[in-house]
Amino acid sequence: MSEIRYTKDHEWIRVEGDTATVGISDYAQNQLGDVVFVDLPDVGKKVAKGGEAAVVESVKAASEVYAPVGGEVIGANDQLSGDPALVNRDPMGEGWFVKLKLSNPAELAELMDEAAYADFVKGLG
């Protein structure tokens, strides 16, 4: 059974065992607008919690995607190079960014669950 957690920077992380998939939330893709390019890390790159995991570019601007927890990049979503708009169409599914092997699963406890994130977004107005 996988569980999904969120950051205040609007990344999501879906954990299965000691690996996880990272993307950006529906709120985030809506705020960014049309995604035209995603810069993904190389497999094998080690990222710290809060470190830059990817860059997502809309027509207007480039935004960093931060690693919700620390780990090693074990996969990147190659589909995004040909179809970056997947991030807009299916942010929580096909529009994922990277897969991580977690270095410290205890860091997950600091993230918001679905209900807490929904409240957090509501509070942004």
Partner: peptide, 10 residues
């Protein structure tokens, strides 16, 4: 207005 609901691309 930076954009309307249609979005910058549209």
């Amino acid at each position: 207005p930076v954009q309307y609901p249609a979005g910058i691309l549209a």
